[in-house]
Design a protein around this nucleic acid. Structure first.
Lengths: 342, 342
DNA sequence: TTCATCGGGTAAAACGCTCGACGGCGCAAG
DNA sequence: CTTGCGCCGTCGAGCGTTTTACCCGATGAA
């Protein structure tokens, strides 16, 4: 069966090639009557224009590249799911498709991130995969291609980004704990991303400069995967170092859940003995017992916004972008006033 | 900055257009000397051939469409992640890219699944998103396009598929529990997929026909999301109906974890009071306490194999495919002999 | 010496669509 | 009755590759 082309539609409908093309692209130049006649034939043959030909002629692939990290359990991370859903929603609504890539060693080594754009396979790129070591991204400085770092940023590099405001999260969290009277706090940080470092540093700063008296913060690394396991191990370490801690602050909810689990396993009550706080407000945070106090990061919104910005970059509406999205405190049962006499 | 084309490379290297093209496609026709001369220029300009033009001329997009379900927390399902990783690995190794789509209502309603292939945006489709209601897939019967159902199947429809052998899983699980002496078993089934139904029916059959005496199986639905929450609720229901159950069989590990959680909350020991068993062998199954006995489903392999089959379908090596992948029993601590006197 | 063969390269016709330039026609204004 | 202008539609020149013939010169056999 021969594949149909726009030519067949033209012949059958009695109009010219160009007319059919214009109809298919909803060009206002064409009258409703003509449009109807053409569409009738289009529908009759269930015709769909060849996208390669379209891409070639129009110089646009109507495709966005999305690069996700190569963590073993990457998909199990709700974090990513939310972002991708947001991106998908936005991209689809604008007629764009999503080309998915995983930032494997191979992907990086063969510079696929450049090829994708240079070969026009994708019109722009949303990079969710960066950690602190992604120096190769410097090729995107100076914006040779529409490129956005999603929920990450590199201080000092001129790379477009859309991210949650981790510094503000750190402040909200610190103020909450300090306000409850905590002065000996354990911090489980993520140090393999710049956003993680920003969070840590701002949290430490806020605790140091608290008007009602500085807090004593001990911090440890929660591991590169920001996982429950990592949080558990980090908590063990913290409590070993400082058994007198009254609060644990984890840089994300999953690590916080690990911390809570450690408390249960060691017969410590949350928040009576130790308060535990996370960041992100993942779905399960509301369901654990006690509910996890956290700072809400709207990752879906990050996805939406990144995609928006990328589209704007692509059609020249903006030249660069460095958005920080607001966060908000979510107080649940896992944090409480510092125990009397502690 | 003008975009370079193959023409520029031809001019600069002193060869013809066709020669450059042949070089770029590793055609044996060209001598090593020529190849080197051309590649030198290619590298000098960091040239990457336009993929739309390629696609148009070669009639292949070198892209595979992957459609995933529209569950709210779909990405948090390790199940999907494993499959996609497998697909990605295989596709990439063959020079194919992945076009990701989510089976939203919109996606279905606008028949994107057809458009994608008809417009040649993708050369083939891997459909992971099907549930029992996906009747619209009938358009793929008779193989108008390379299409494979991943880890699902529709009895009675001639649709290609690659799936884990759920019937064999059911038998392995049943034999394990029956062999331990259990005769009053609660089954948490998933009924929104055909594979789920196959599992349930085969499990019931195996229990009915057990040589050493049929078991009494009570089954309930675990909910459409096959989630921990669903498993928890289903367990509550089962234990309400039949407080004398000695074993709970869940159609996947996540529901089994929900069941174990219910036991903990109700001060029942696993497996001393009640044995609990799952299916899939997700990563966490080995880490819970006690370890979850389960039937191992190698979802990564399902991804690899589906992609393999799709590629074979695409280049005509096979005409259809209905693969069932083997499963194996994994015994951990959550199942034990039926309690004495019960 | 002649001629078939072959390795290695080239010319040029697709591939199927977009879009800017162009033009015919009818109607209102001059 | 011209002229000008808008509205609708058409012409046709690309877009950047792939790929099928075809060509040419060297080589070896007859």
């Amino acid at each position: 069966m021969k594949r149909r082309t726009i030519k067949d539609i033209a012949k059958e409908s009695g109009f010219s090639l160009s007319t059919v093309s214009l109809v298919l692209n909803n060009h206002p130049r064409i009258s409703q009557a003509t449009r109807d006649r053409v569409m009738e034939v289009v529908r009759k043959y269930d015709f769909h224009p060849n996208s390669a030909a379209r891409g070639l002629a129009s110089k646009s692939s109507r495709t966005l590249s999305v690069v996700i990290p190569n963590l073993s359990r990457v998909f199990s991370d709700i974090y990513l799911g939310e972002i991708i859903s947001g991106i998908y929603e936005r991209a689809t609504s604008q007629g764009y498709k999503i080309l998915l890539d995983i930032a494997t060693a191979q992907f990086i080594a063969s510079q696929e991130y450049t090829k994708l754009l240079a070969s026009r396979r994708a019109d722009g790129m949303l990079f969710i995969a960066s950690d602190i070591h992604a120096d190769y991204l410097h090729v995107f400085e100076g914006a040779p291609y529409p490129f956005i770092l999603v929920n990450h940023l590199f201080p000092g590099k001129r790379l477009n980004y859309v991210a949650v405001d981790y510094a503000s999260s750190a402040r909200l969290a610190a103020e909450h704990l300090l306000g409850l009277g905590h002065r000996r706090i354990g911090l489980i940080a993520g140090t393999n991303t710049h956003t993680g470092l920003i969070f840590r540093d701002e949290f430490l700063r806020a605790c140091r400069e608290w008007p009602a008296g500085a807090a004593d913060v001990t911090w440890v690394d929660g591991g590169d995967e920001w996982s429950q396991r990592g949080g558990y191990a980090a908590t063990a370490k913290l409590m070993g170092l400082r058994p007198d801690l009254t609060a644990i602050m984890a840089a994300n909810d999953r690590m916080a859940l690990g911390a809570m689990r450690w408390m249960v396993d060691h017969h410590l009550e949350v928040p009576e003995d130790v308060s535990v706080m996370g960041v992100d407000d993942i779905q399960i945070a509301a369901y654990v017992n006690p509910g996890l106090s956290t700072v809400r990061h709207d990752l879906y919104q990050v996805g939406i916004e990144s995609c928006n910005r990328l589209l704007q970059l692509m059609n020249g509406e903006i030249k660069e972008c460095s958005d920080l999205l607001p966060t908000s405190l979510v107080v649940r049962g896992s944090t409480g006033r510092v125990p009397a006499g502690k």
